[in-house]
Design a binder for these strands. Structure first.
Lengths: 158, 158, 158, 158
DNA sequence: TTTT
DNA sequence: TTTT
């Protein structure tokens, strides 16, 4: 089987507060409704806007931590993959496509706020010399809290 | 309006031959069924594979040109954006999420084949010094036919 | 040889007006200087900002068309691939990494402006029912001018 | 500040074993040399191949864990952002562009192997019902170990 | 050297 | 149902 790629990147806003649920298993599931906006000029040269709505899902500890910090209207950047599931309702097979999210980062006004409080709940240890970003990637690795550029240049070993 | 981002990147294979249709308008629409494969190790440390299926759509001239060259099984890289449309069927509102594709590039065995014949049909002129790639981006700009790295280094103007 | 992926997506602003040059060959080359900004909270919980600067290059007809419409300060979304070239200067081998761009789309205030005038210069024909987007993708395929979602839903053939 | 996007996605192979170093600070830094391959047809319709080489850097705990499991030749998918740093050498200012990596996932033959041993070293706890993927994302969140599609459909709470 |  |  050839390893493939199934990648989605969305930048937009939450259209509603997040909804946290639990599977029968006890696994947390967070569902987000997210808008991405697009501007364009139509065939009559009139400026137009269009909004696309997306179903975003976070699983596991991330779901719980994000539930505490996300609010309707937040500007966010989401990365994940597509998943379409099917289910039967009223004797009819239906399909639902979601973005299974792996990362979330604040954009807009919250990008300069304190790091989301829920994130420290699961024992994040900030490494010496590590910046705490406004990202909400919930791995416990202190390094993930560093902005993408790493330590100051003057401490580079090369 | 906050300009956002709605981006999908998929690498995988076509599960069927493409289907070309036309709107009432006469606009060509190409529909592809594409699989992306993923490997992982499950909770019992057993290697597993999973396939996700995607609905891909090309609009316009690209739809027609690609219809001529794509075949079931082809390895492709697709870029586009998500679009969910709703329609009524049997008195029930249904939703369908598709990837509206903007680019397609062959991967795998066809990446080294000749450029897709359909692509020359719309008058591609290859510029002097321009490689013709195995990409099926259908703009007529000769430059698009150049591999992403541009001309040979010794003809750089800087 | 395994087909790989070499993909860069940048959203930010031009730090200077674009520079158009020509190779010995006569091939147009457009160089852009682009900033991407990032906000984060540092280890002392102070909000910080950081700017990364990128060298962007367009080749061919796109270079010329974009040269006419891009201005210092413009908000843009760029897609392309990395290319590092090496050259000798003062007897020393040096390296320069650039993003070889394949697409550019306006974000921010220009996203709702008229389509860039330079773009019609190369004979764009707008298809019936096709919106003209604020994107500056320079393929001549009318379909590329359609927003990512295609025609209105009521003209879908399915 | 305008929050931007600085995103790189590469799929290819390691050209050498990884090199692990430490900053004066003690922060681990892992450097990878990675090739991405591209196939195209040149202006004479001859099939050609081209390889681009990239400098990849991981910081922090991830650097150490990955150092244990990566080997020359490995097929990997890397995600990160661009960072160009400047330094003085022989009285000349030089620039070096790197991809500051945030994620790594195996592709190819290792995608079905056991999860990288180094990864358990930092206390990974697999959640009930959670698959352990072949990804080397080093957050300690058990959820990250789930394939992008989440739990089985029959345990969905909706 | 950009942007808000 | 979001955002500017």
């Amino acid at each position: 089987m050839n390893e493939g790629l199934n990648k989605v990147i969305l930048m937009g806003n939450l259209g509603a507060d997040p909804e946290l649920r639990y599977t029968g298993n006890g696994t947390p599931v967070l569902q987000l409704r997210m808008a991405t906006n697009e501007s364009f000029v139509d065939k009559n040269k009139e400026p137009k806007e269009r909004t696309e709505w997306h179903n975003i899902v976070f699983w596991g500890q991330r779901a719980e931590a994000l539930a505490k910090v996300l609010t309707k209207g937040d500007g966010v950047l989401i990365e994940g993959g597509l998943r379409t599931s099917s289910y039967e309702k009223d004797g009819i097979r239906r399909y639902r496509t979601e973005v299974i999210a792996r990362d979330l980062r604040f954009t807009g006004r919250r990008a300069l706020a304190q790091p989301p409080p829920g994130l420290e709940d699961d024992g994040e240890a900030t490494q010496p010399g590590t910046g705490v970003p406004t990202t909400a990637r919930l791995g416990k690795n202190g390094a993930r809290g560093r902005p993408p550029e790493g330590p100051a240049l003057d401490e580079l070993p090369y």
